[in-house]
Amino acid sequence: MTISCGVLPVLEPEDQEHAYEMGDYEGARARWCPGCGDHSILTAVQRLLASEQLPPERTMFVSGIGCSSRFPHYLNTYGFHGIHGRALPIATGIKLTRPDLDIFVVMGDGDCTSIGAGHWIHALRYNLDIVVMLLDNGIYGLTKNQTSPTTPQGHPSNTQPHGSWLPSLNPLTTALGVTNASFVAQTAEWIPSHLYATLRAARRHRGLSFVRILQRCPVYSSAVYMKAVQDPSRIALLAHDDGVVVPELEKVYKNHVAHNPHDLEAARRVAESTEHVNLGVLFADPSRPRYEDLRRVPPRTADERIHLLDAELDRYAV
């Protein structure tokens, strides 16, 4: 459905109740580097689209600029590969106009937490019903190795060769600090089943679902997540029935933290903690107001609008 008469909802002539398979969502062949974590995220997303049976023509991927922002090209859905840092305003405009579309926003760490940080904060507050994926490899990859806000302190790059000067920005605490943020989760691309389950929880959440996906860049920041990849004991899975539950992972990942995602204070503690890399849903509150609901107005037909405009013009009549 739409917020106004400008756009009609799509009615299909024939009963097109056919089941979509993963292949139905494949676009151009992905051209990320071999070993890039983005490949795994693409697969998880295709699996999600198929499992949720989202019609490709009513599914929309919006991205900015960066390695990760090539994402829409590799899917057979509608895509908008925009400009650096500005995916969220575009997605906001689309969602306000077309609440019927399933919208996914794909951003890198430079895109989201640096040049687009202003939009990020406000999008969290608008709380539109969209999925926002931060593909965080802690580096600028497309422009070849520059420090990003999430680059770990001390990690060298072409712009800060003696190591990043500042402590890295924590996207989770930032997101959880924003008024009206309604869903914050963290997952890692090298644990595909957790990634998939987290994305599914995000897609099913009503409101803006912010998912930080730890993503390896084998070329410029392979060290960033190396220890967590190699040593499962560095990872802790957040456990709760309203969070992400992946039984098959419990054998490999032995650290389980009971965490109620409805508890914002606890979520902020988890986001701050550095003891482990915490994966799962940190916070979810489906009751927070969604901007597209607040702004939905009854559409008016062209005739009604003419009638109303006549009345309006009368206010200015001489």
Partner: peptide, 20 residues
């Protein structure tokens, strides 16, 4: 829609236009 800044205002308008 009162956007968070001038850039976003243009972006939201474009997103809306794009989608119909």
């Amino acid at each position: 829609h009162q956007a968070e800044d001038e850039i976003a205002a243009a972006g939201v308008a474009i997103g809306s236009s794009y989608s119909g």
